[in-house]
Every structure is written in structure tokens, then in C-alpha cells.
């Protein structure tokens, strides 16, 4: 039974990684940049939800909606002020700017909320599900997280495949200049991508803190790095690949924590990533890129 419960915990944690990783993947696919500030947007989302729930006594659902709005605006603003002026600059310049934004968000959060951890109250107040006469308990958070993850994946897939904006996104990620020539507004498309990615970050932040309730200004950075790893692991740029990568990463992390060593679990996660990349250099479901001379 411990195996099953570990598996469920792994899938639940993996679902959070997957939601974060989707934000990374979409931005990477379209703007070709590693958005290191994404992890900190998660943290802002969690704080937004925390504040409305604790200080204003809002209903959890309303607070989630509020945090989605906050993060979406934040994502678009960051893109407009920090990344848009660097559209034609080298990728390293954008990377360093993203790191600057990440420092900015973390330190702003530190000034506003201080370094003492806030204890996040779970947004899901349903009793845990008890199966097999109490041998196996599944927390409501895990069920909600997995369900949210599946819904988001279906929604995103439909969005990118069926809508006009989704088509524009795929076009821009394929070839920015050609898309522009075909009448796609590249700037709007990139802004929309940031908006969606940041909205997902808000959801991920709330779910992450519901499962692991300590909230500090650096809450987002490690999950951010791991989610990015997950995106690369599954094949960055591909939505199903990213989902798969996230969930596998969560399972590997929980299993290595409970069967091998708690303190070495991160090392194991990263070691698996390296092995996968050495065998399949573009990730599990990544497209093979042929090189042109």
C-alpha cells in the first residue's frame, strides 16, 4: 500500500511540476528564451491567494481567480518592460534580464511579506479519501491537483490546435519572420503566451502551497528549476512531452525520497535527467532537429 500511496503522491507532485513546466515550455517554444522568472511568478501567485484568503476572508475559489488575474497582469507587464525591448538581442542577454526580474520579484516579496514563512491554508477543504479500510488515504489536494493538471492539458491542447490564436502561436514558434509576413501579430502572440504561462503559474502556486504549506519569497525557485528540468526531460516545446516529463519527475522524486535517501533525492532526479538527455538529446517526446549547414 505504501507503494500505491507513494505513486499517488508522486503523480500529484508531478502534476504541479507539469503545470509549471507548461508555462516554461510555451514561452520557450515561442520566444526561445529560458524564463527564469517563471518560478517567482508562482510565488507571487501563492502570496496573492494567501493574502486575499487570510486578510480579506475571501472564498478560496475567488482567491484563486484573483491570483490568476494578478499573475497574468504581472506576466504581461514583465514581458512588455523587460523582454520586449530585447526581442532582437542575444539569448544570453535575455537570460540575464530574466534573472534580474527573478531577483526583483524575490526581493520585492521579501520587502512586502518578510522572510518569516507564512503558513498557507489549503484551498481544498474536503476530507481525505480513505480506501481499503483506512489503509490508503488520498488527500483531496492530490485529486484536485491531478484533475486540474489533466483539465489544463486538454484545454491547452484544444487551444493550440483549434483556435486562431493557438494557430498563430504554433506559427510563431515555427518561424517568427515567416509568421509575421503571413500577417500574424508576433508581439500580441508572445504577450498572450506570457499571459497564459503566468496564469498557469498562479494555479501551480496555489496548488503547490496547498500541498506544501510553507510560503517564503524563495518558494518558487526550486520548483521552478525542477519544472524547467521536467520540461527539458519530456521534450521542451511539446505539450504532452512536458506533461509526461513533469509527472515522471514527480514520481522519481517521491520514490527516491522514500526508498533511497531524502537528502539525495534531488541529485537522483537530476541524474535521471542527464541520463535521459544523453540517450535522447531532445527529451522523451522532443522533436529531432536536423542540422542544416
Amino acid at each position: 500500500m505504501t507503494f500505491v500511496s507513494n505513486l499517488i503522491n508522486g503523480i500529484s507532485l508531478g502534476s504541479v511540476y507539469a503545470i509549471i513546466a507548461l508555462g516554461y515550455t510555451m514561452v520557450y517554444g515561442i520566444a526561445k528564451m529560458l524564463n527564469f522568472a517563471h518560478g517567482d511568478v508562482i510565488m507571487v501567485g501563492a502570496y496573492a491567494s494567501y493574502c486575499t484568503m487570510i486578510y480579506l476572508n475571501w472564498h478560496p475559489l475567488l482567491s484563486i481567480l484573483f491570483s490568476i488575474v494578478v499573475c497574468t497582469i504581472l506576466g504581461v507587464v514583465i514581458e512588455a518592460f523587460a523582454y520586449k525591448p530585447l526581442r532582437r538581442a542575444g539569448s544570453l542577454a535575455v537570460l540575464i534580464t530574466a534573472i534580474g526580474v527573478s531577483y526583483l520579484l524575490q526581493n520585492a516579496a521579501l520587502l512586502i511579506w518578510g522572510s518569516t514563512p507564512k503558513i498557507f491554508t489549503s484551498v481544498v477543504n474536503i476530507k481525505p479519501l480513505s480506501l481499503f479500510g483506512g489503509k490508503l488515504t488520498i488527500t483531496a489536494e492530490s485529486i484536485v491537483t491531478v484533475a486540474a493538471c489533466v483539465l489544463i492539458m486538454i484545454g491547452l491542447t484544444l487551444f493550440t490546435q483549434k483556435t486562431k490564436m493557438g494557430k498563430a502561436m504554433r506559427a510563431v514558434s515555427e518561424d517568427k519572420d515567416a509568421a509575421e509576413l503571413m500577417g500574424v501579430n508576433v508581439n500580441t502572440t508572445i504577450s498572450t503566451t506570457f499571459a497564459i504561462g503566468s496564469a498557469l503559474a498562479a494555479v501551480a502556486g496555489v496548488l503547490l502551497c496547498s500541498a506544501y504549506p510553507t510560503l517564503v519569497p524563495t518558494t518558487g525557485s526550486m520548483p521552478g528549476i525542477k519544472a524547467f528540468t521536467a520540461a527539458v526531460f519530456g521534450g521542451i516545446g511539446s505539450i504532452p512531452g512536458t506533461m509526461l516529463g513533469g509527472i515522471l519527475l514527480g514520481i522519481i522524486e517521491i520514490f527516491s525520497k522514500s526508498y533511497i535517501s531524502t537528502s539525495l533525492s534531488d541529485a537522483i532526479v537530476f541524474a535521471v535527467l542527464i541520463i535521459v538527455l544523453l540517450v535522447k538529446p531532445t527529451g522523451i517526446l522532443g522533436k529531432k532537429v536536423t542540422e542544416k549547414v
Binding site: 523587460a82 540575464i96 534580464t97 534580474g100 526580474v101 531577483y103 526583483l104 526581493n107 520585492a108
Partner: peptide
């Protein structure tokens, strides 16, 4: 915070 802003 100022450091981050200068960097950006």
C-alpha cells in the same frame, strides 16, 4: 531590489 533593477 536596487541591485536587481540596476541589472535589468
Amino acid at each position: 531590489l536596487i541591485y536587481a533593477i540596476i541589472l535589468i
